[in-house]
Amino acid sequence: MTEDLTGPPWATDWTKSAAEYRDSLPTTVRDQIIDAVTELKCSRHPYRDDHLDTAKVNIEPVRSTQPRGAHLLYFDRGRGWLRYVFTPRVAEPQIVIETLFWQ
């Protein structure tokens, strides 16, 4: 089923707490987050790292036993990460960013 999806760019939404935390960070960090999420939105599949600029971002599943579950997207050389899930609906596939962290 996931091969029949509409394709990138994927719709993206943020949970309220992740969006509030993102908005509280310095501008340079927010710009890096925007770049990282743009890489993810434009990837062929949000759970695979092919066609991603791995110098900027990398992804991995939160639990190896759930490869289609939540994933982590690392950015800023691993100083920050965000946890997201991908909902592969046929009409409008969507990435939901649940948690954001930056140190």
Rank of each mutant, 00 (worst) to 15 (best):
A70F: 08
A70G: 05
A55C: 13
D49T: 10
E39I: 09
W102S: 06
K56I: 11
P8H: 09
L52D: 00
R44G: 15
W81M: 11
L72E: 09
T6I: 13
I59G: 04
I59L: 06
E3Q: 14
G78K: 00
T38M: 08
L5T: 08
A91H: 02
T99V: 12
D13K: 13
L82W: 07
Y74M: 04
G7V: 06
T6D: 10
P46T: 04
L82M: 08
D50K: 12
S64W: 12
I59H: 00
Y84A: 01
K41C: 12
V90L: 12
D31I: 03
T65M: 10
R30I: 07
L82V: 04
Q32Y: 14
F101E: 05
T2M: 13
P26Q: 07
E60I: 02
L100R: 01
K41A: 14
L72T: 07
D13Q: 14
A91C: 02
V85D: 08
I59N: 04
R68T: 13
E92C: 10
V29A: 00
S64L: 15
K16A: 09
L25K: 00
T2I: 11
E39P: 07
W102C: 09
R48S: 11
L82Y: 07
I34R: 14
F86C: 01
A36D: 00
S64Y: 15
W14I: 05
A11G: 03
D13V: 13
S43V: 10
E60K: 08
P88G: 06
R68V: 07
D31Y: 07
T99A: 04
L73K: 08
V57A: 07
F101C: 03
I33A: 05
P9L: 02
S17R: 12
R44T: 15
L72I: 07
Q66T: 15
V37T: 04
V96M: 08
I95Y: 05
V96L: 12
F75L: 08
V85Q: 11
T54N: 08
F75W: 07
D76W: 02
A18H: 11
S64H: 15
L25N: 00
V62F: 15
I34E: 15
T28G: 06
L100Y: 02
P8G: 03
I95R: 04
T38P: 03
L40C: 03
V37R: 01
R48G: 10
Q94G: 09
V37N: 01
P46S: 02
E92R: 14
F101H: 06
L52P: 01
E60D: 03
R63S: 15
T38K: 10
S17V: 11
A11S: 12
R68P: 02
P88K: 02
D4P: 11
H71T: 01
R89Y: 07
E98P: 05
D50M: 11
V29G: 00
W10P: 08
L52R: 02
A70D: 05
T2D: 14
T15S: 10
N58H: 13
I34P: 05
S64K: 15
P67N: 13
I59T: 07
L52A: 01
G69D: 04
H71P: 00
A19W: 12
R48E: 10
F75S: 04
R63W: 14
D31T: 09
H45G: 11
